[in-house]
Design a protein around this nucleic acid. Structure first.
Lengths: 182, 182
DNA sequence: CTTAGATAATTGCGCACGCAACGACCTTCT
DNA sequence: AGAAGGTCGTTGCGTGCGCAATTATCTAAG
């Protein structure tokens, strides 16, 4: 084709690329997610009086064994940096929805542990949120499409954030005093 | 609390809901998009020396008739508020990649218009970005899956942000000479 | 035991965003 | 024409996040 000669307009090649399907797909991904997220956030705030971020964090904890998770695990699962997670947990702690519990096996580490109040909050927000999800996109999709979407997104998630798919982690046994001395 | 209590509890209903497939799907949506976005942003910054947001805005303009768009249209298409868009265009204007052009038919309005420098920047970033998209998720998906994803996301986008799908807007059949002056 | 290197979580700093309030302008109704 | 109300874009303010540096602790090597 056009070799290094400066003849044909370089913009033509670029114009072709500007219409690339892949860009459109990436744009749809961004617009659909961002738009949906905004909608869900506004409705969570209006109906349940908390930001969507709070709900997501509380939900992760509620679904975890013993309703607690290491800070670093929670960070991995939420695509937040350790820094961002520290601040987020600060806010939840101030609201008495989460407590920091120091980890006995690693004195650097902390668990974020759901309080009773936090559990109440998240369970009472669950119904509204599921309704918002239906309104926001689930009702648009057939069961088959939902399955396709889940399969595709899982592939992407596992690829961009392998840490998030990890197994529930070595179990903390309550009365096990395995902190064997030296 | 009742660490050793067994038997039926009101939490059981909630526990069922906590495992709802819909929550998992929503979580996958969030994790996959956020993780992908972070990856794309870091690579754009590293290889092309600009934030992904800049590239997205410049790309929208490059794909628009006469390489310009009304501020409000651009805001709709990017899920930014008018406020956020004003600041973003400020930054691009400071970098001489975009110019504000007042709209002759509505003196309240402005076009964001791509400069030559801006066009260069976006076209030179196009190749790397497409490579990042392939690396980030497209290479994981069969053509069929890409089609399914596009169809599904388009439904969601049209539902959560109907304004973004609008036709290219009534064209100003002006002569192309309007931009030149100061 | 001692030392060097990795890892968990936090903090200072700067940046980008949304909301609400505002001024400028357009549109419609009387 | 004149007034009322809506729309376009910008600004003040507060918030949330990521990056880089820091402290405390764990782990590995000599």
């Amino acid at each position: 084709m056009s070799a290094m000669s400066r003849g044909p307009q370089p913009t033509e090649m670029a114009d072709q690329l500007l219409d690339d399907e892949r860009l459109t797909l990436a744009g749809l991904f961004a617009e659909s997610y961002t738009g949906l997220r905004g909608q869900l956030d506004r409705r969570m705030l209006a109906e349940c009086n908390m930001p969507l971020q709070w709900f997501v964090l509380l939900l992760r904890l509620a679904r975890s064994p013993d309703r607690r998770l290491r800070m670093s695990d929670l960070a991995d699962q939420t695509s937040l940096t350790p820094s961002g997670l520290t601040r987020a947990i600060d806010r939840l702690t101030d609201a008495r929805l989460v407590e920091r519990v120091s980890c006995p096996s690693d004195r650097r580490g902390f668990f974020a542990a759901l309080t009773d109040k936090g559990l109440d909050r998240v369970t009472s927000a669950l119904g509204p949120h599921l309704r918002h999800l239906d309104d926001g996109f689930l009702s648009l999709l057939s069961p088959e499409e939902q399955g396709q979407l889940a399969a595709i997104l899982r592939k992407i998630r596992d690829h961009v954030n392998p840490g998030a798919a990890r197994p529930p982690e070595p179990i903390p046994d309550d009365d096990a005093t395995t902190v064997a001395a030296s």
